[in-house]
Nucleic acid binder design. Structure first.
Length: 835
RNA sequence: GCGCCCGUAGCCCAACGGCAGAGGCACAGGACUUAGGUUCCUGACAGUGUGAGUUCGAGUCUCACCGGGCGCACCA
């Protein structure tokens, strides 16, 4: 092929171009964070992947979008930290290992290599020198270290609690292993069992997790903030003490007990309407206070509750069940004796696990009262029909009735504070704040996770593994060793589990649980700042330089847990003096989901789109461009609506321009065709604003526009030799480098430049070229368009008004009517209001 | 039940409260071609889900309704 033929070719070989530039970039290493203080730092973070198989369309989308931001920052001259790693502990690897009779690491690290290679070919601007895997002992050593620090602060503790239990497999299941109430492995109905489990005391930070969201307002999606608020679930109310009376069967009279039943309520003002009490059936308290004559019925009920599957529990309109505990409690304000029941509609781990039932004003209590023939007493008259008759509870404002000195009051807030004051004065209650948020259960009876660095000694109790003995490394278990058989796989590894107590040297056992993988991912973004540090989880100074991350990009499926846990970790580390900020991610972007033909891609639907096939057919750039151009980043995009073929054709059109440029590299653009120069500079100017506001799809549209006008300029305008053409095409290459790195690089070379276009620098906008010689001003009469005027951009309001009023079209529209008001927005608009 | 988001051409999507259309897909016609494909040119297509309100002016702000999507849900 002659040079002329090459230059006039209508398309380039996509695969060949990819092969050509990959090794060049690898040698140039243009995306390694310098961290030398020469330039302002920016941290672009993307949620690290789980290594299940090769990358799919979802990975392609999120990294394409994320890379637009990172590459834009590079072009703007920032020192960018854009790291990648793998969240590599987790159940799929363990299941695969059982199936294939191998070690989970085999599956895990093979997939990591596959994904890493795919990311490399996909041309994401990652800093590969900071790569980490949470399943590496060098990483999880520090996960263990952090666990021990949390424990020292009282933020990691152990308690007995009910967990999912598969009676067939004889094993504990994580929530995500329970599918529709059934065991994921064997299909048996899952029940509950009490086990000793580790927790993080995230509830200690509930208020701060809520308050600090103020800093995120406007920079995080409103939806995510709403989800987190909802999850934390702060409510304001009161604790109220009801004196318990145990029933004495010999005399039939109530005896005062040494304890009080403390309830949490958001409506202390309705205490006069309480007609019974309910204790959560699965709360320890229920068994403790149950009268002997009711013991048998109670035990039977608890057994029934325990067996209830999640399917039943989740059913709406489920009939209320419960059992009378045979004891009574005294209403602190009326002295009335209220029967105490146990039921499963009261939750053991919310509030105090006990409620005062006010059936007239709470539908759940009313349903229960109706089921068991308990009294209903209205104490707030809302003007609605009486719930005692209708069995429809009323919860709105109204006039208090039958409520002692509250009677006649109509203000709920006043009613609440009056009751709370009185309770506080009598020492029978107090105002209280309650959260829906529960402590974070982090124990998992799994193998492929971070071991909990605790030794259980018969003499010393819980003993932390000393820091200098970390990491506690997983033993070499594989295949059948990992099958569940009543104990966690680690507990069966005798050589591993039996150790000398670090405190007394006597025989002891290691904790055989591993940590929830969300623990691993709650601090990886800190580790990226100094990934090879061997003396600490992260270098405090490095974190000070890079964190908080300016931008975090990832799926909305992590809106609650991962983000909440990461925020929690950050606050604890702040309290430990290890970081100087309280929020780890300044801005958050949730990309949408790639669907196909209106439905989520799935194997069972057979509507999956294979990323590898798309890349093979259209090339990396076309696929990336398609995903970025598809719509706003946060919208779901339907692959069926998209046209990777169209994207490829556009890229070829853009590329073709680079062969048409006839001026020499370095030709100054000054003196070039002004119209084309204006289009170029306007495009860059708009792209800046669009990129800052994450409207990447519109950026692509603007580049397409610039390609179109440049084509016209070459073919039928100023011609290929005009310096403005070179300026325009170089601009196209730089703008395209954010989305289509291979095409951009190829263009850059054909334009006579050395690689890499990714670091060429952002084009400088000449403000003079953003000004037009004339502007179209529209003239409206009564808001309706009546005339267009070509005017100078700096026309005065008075001149514009005069010109507008003199226009014949306007005069005709006015039709002699009196002009009452003229609104002038020079130089774009005049609106004439007539009387 | 509570909360959040979204309705603009056949389709995906643009539009600081100021001319409803930037860009693309699909479609039609033309040029090039033996033909197909590619490439280039040209074209048609909506008055913004409905109804009120605010405003000189509303796709844009407010309210209600209709339609679609999502999250949480026995949280006292």
């Amino acid at each position: 092929m002659t040079e002329h033929e090459a230059r006039s070719a209508t398309s380039y070989d996509v695969a060949a171009v990819q092969e050509k530039w990959l090794p060049v970039w690898e040698a140039l290493n243009p995306f390694q964070a310098a961290d030398d203080g020469a330039r302002e730092r920016r941290y672009a973070l993307t949620m690290f992947p789980y290594p299940s198989g090769d990358l799919h369309m979802g990975h392609a989308e999120v990294t394409a979008l994320h890379d637009v931001i990172a590459r834009y920052w590079w072009q703007r001259g920032y020192d960018v930290l854009n790291p990648i790693g793998w969240d590599s502990f987790g159940l799929p690897a363990e299941n695969a290992a059982i199936q294939r009779d191998e070690h989970p690491a085999t599956y895990t690290y093979a997939n990591i290599e596959t994904q890493a290679e795919s990311f490399r070919r996909y041309g994401i601007s990652f800093d590969w020198s900071r790569r980490l895997h949470t399943s590496d002992p060098e990483y999880y050593r520090w996960t263990q270290w952090l666990f021990l620090r949390f424990r020292e602060r009282g933020l990691a503790y152990r308690k007995y609690s009910p967990v999912n239990w598969c009676p067939n497999d004889q094993t504990v299941l994580a929530n995500e292993q329970v599918v529709d109430g059934m065991c994921e492995r064997c299909g048996a109905e899952v029940t509950k069992r009490e086990l000793s489990q580790w927790y993080f005391k995230v509830t200690d930070y509930a208020q701060r997790l809520l308050d600090d969201m103020e800093q995120l307002e406007g920079r995080w999606p409103e939806r995510v903030l709403a989800l987190q608020r909802n999850w934390i679930g702060r409510s304001v109310g009161a604790h109220v003490d009801f004196e318990l009376r145990l029933h004495d069967p010999s005399t039939g009279s109530g005896q005062a007990a040494a304890r009080a039943l403390t309830v949490y309520t958001t409506r202390p003002d309705t205490v006069y309407g309480a007609t019974f009490m309910v204790v959560a059936a699965d709360a320890k308290l229920a068994g403790e206070i149950c009268a002997p004559q009711q013991r048998e019925a109670f035990e039977a009920y608890v057994e029934q509750v325990r067996k209830a599957s999640d399917i039943e529990r989740l059913a709406t309109d489920r009939p209320k069940t419960g059992v009378d505990l045979g004891v009574t409690a005294l209403n602190p304000l009326t002295g009335e004796q209220l029967p105490v029941w146990a039921a499963d509609y009261v939750l053991a781990d919310y509030g105090t696990g006990v409620i005062m039932a006010v059936p007239a004003h709470d539908q759940r209590d009313l349903d229960f009262a109706r089921e068991f023939g308990l009294p209903v007493r209205r104490v707030v008259d809302t003007g609605e029909p009486n719930p005692e008759d209708t069995y429809v509870a009323t919860s709105g404002d109204g006039t208090y009735v039958g409520s002692g000195d509250l009677d006649g009051l109509t203000d709920k807030a006043a009613g609440i504070s009056r009751v709370v004051e009185r309770l506080e004065a009598e020492g029978r209650g107090s105002a209280a704040v309650n959260f829906r948020l529960r402590d974070w259960l982090l124990s998992r009876q799994r193998f492929w996770g971070c071991p909990i660095p605790i030794v259980h000694c018969p003499a010393c109790g819980e003993v932390p593994v000393p820091d200098d003995q970390l990491p506690v490394v997983l033993p070499d278990l594989r295949g059948a060793d990992l099958k569940p058989k009543g104990t966690s796989p680690l507990a069966a590894a005798e050589d591993w589990v039996n150790v000398d107590c670090p405190a007394c040297g006597g025989p002891a056992k290691r904790d055989s649980d591993t940590m929830d993988t969300f623990v691993d991912s709650s601090w990886y973004f800190l580790r990226y700042c100094s990934p090879h540090d061997t003396g600490a989880p992260f270098d405090v100074e490095a974190v000070r330089r890079w964190m908080p991350a300016e931008q975090y990009v990832g799926g909305v499926e992590h809106a609650i847990l991962h983000l909440l846990y990461s925020r929690f970790f950050t606050k604890v580390l702040h309290d430990m003096g290890m970081v100087d900020f309280v929020e780890p991610f300044e801005a958050l972007m949730n990309q949408g989901v790639v669907i196909n033909h209106g439905k989520k891609m799935s194997k069972s639907l057979g509507n999956g789109v294979n990323l590898g096939e798309q890349l093979a057919e259209y090339g990396v750039d076309a696929v990336r461009l398609t995903l970025v151009f598809a719509g706003p980043p946060e919208d779901n995009i339907d692959w069926a609506d998209l046209s990777p073929g169209g994207s490829l054709r556009f890229l070829q059109r853009a590329w073709r321009l680079s062969g048409d440029v006839a001026s020499a590299p370095g030709t100054p653009p000054e003196g070039g065709d002004v119209a084309l120069r204006r289009a170029t500079h306007r495009c860059v100017h708009e792209a800046e604003q669009l990129l800052e506001s994450h409207r990447f799809n519109v950026v692509v549209a603007r580049v397409m526009e610039l390609v179109n006008v440049t084509r016209k300029a070459v073919d039928s305008g100023c011609g290929p030799g005009d310096p403005a053409v070179r300026e325009a095409v170089e601009t196209v290459a730089i703008l395209l480098s954010l989305v289509a790195p291979y095409t951009a690089e190829e263009m850059w070379e054909r334009l006579g430049h050395a690689p890499t276009v990714a670091r060429a620098g952002w084009p400088e906008v000449d403000p003079a070229l953003l000004v037009r010689d004339s502007v179209t001003a529209v003239v409206q009469v009564q808001g309706k368009l009546r005339a267009r005027l070509e005017v100078g951009p700096d026309i005065s309001e008075a001149d514009l008004e005069a010109t507008a009023l003199a226009d014949p079209h306007v005069q005709r529209a006015l039709d002699g009517r009196e002009v009452r008001k003229v609104i002038v927005r020079a130089p774009k608009l005049v609106n004439i209001v007539v009387g």
